[in-house]
Design a protein around this nucleic acid. Structure first.
Length: 199
DNA sequence: CTATTGATGGTC
DNA sequence: ACCATCAATAGG
């Protein structure tokens, strides 16, 4: 059996060329693949966050066009990787037509293969570490050779939960908007949830 | 269980 | 000075 289907399975440009909120919801269940030097690593996307444009005060693009945010203004379907807190990378998917600076942050994966034992994928920083994603992937086309997202059956809305984004308290009213999406009950969703109240 | 803090460096 | 994080620590 060959791998003739590989290219066909990648999500098409039209998937990314839509509102960030739509892409964030529909990315759940899709498969992130990195053909790293040491081998293929893959995981099912189980948690995302939408950053909807320059007017979104939590979006990096709200600072305007800079060297760092330039990629957000570019064509959809590319990777936006940034370095944060001196030691972590975060991976985003650029969405919406060129000129509109929106993106979806990948926050958690359910490991499917190639992820070394002891590495976790429940959180944006850990996800990049486990998948070996770094600044080297910034601006890369996500329908490319080594880093891509494969199509998979859509997760029904009844199995999707949403809530406020994590770590953006500085953005005022935007902090409360329910732009974070995750698969209900999935054990690989990142931890920071407040009401762990049992009854 | 909750709350706080240190690590560590790019960005503006 | 701030930060789309995380692990470790201290306290109840």
């Amino acid at each position: 059996m060959g791998e003739v289907c590989d290219l066909a399975m990648r999500l098409p440009l039209s998937f990314y060329n839509r509102p960030a909120l739509t892409v964030a919801r529909e990315l759940l269940g899709k498969v992130l693949v990195h053909d790293a030097p040491n081998g293929r690593r893959a995981g099912c996307i189980v948690e995302t966050e939408a950053y909807v444009g320059e007017h979104d005060l939590a979006c990096h693009a709200s600072k305007g066009r800079t060297k760092r945010t330039e990629v957000l203004f570019g064509p959809p379907g590319r990777a936006y990787v940034y370095f944060i807190y001196g030691m972590y990378y975060c991976l985003n998917v650029v969405t919406e037509p060129e000129g509109i600076a929106a993106a979806v942050l990948l926050r958690a994966l359910e490991p499917l293969g190639g992820v070394p034992p002891g590495l976790f994928t429940n959180g944006p920083g850990k996800l990049c570490r486990a998948m070996e994603v770094s600044l080297a992937h910034n601006r890369e086309d996500l329908r490319g050779k080594r880093l891509f997202i494969e199509d998979a059956p859509q997760i029904p809305k009844s199995r999707i939960e949403r809530g406020p984004r994590v770590g953006v308290e500085y953005s005022g009213p935007w902090a409360q908007r329910p732009y974070r999406f995750w698969i209900r009950g999935n054990r690989f969703v990142s931890a920071p949830r407040r009401s762990t109240r049992n009854t």
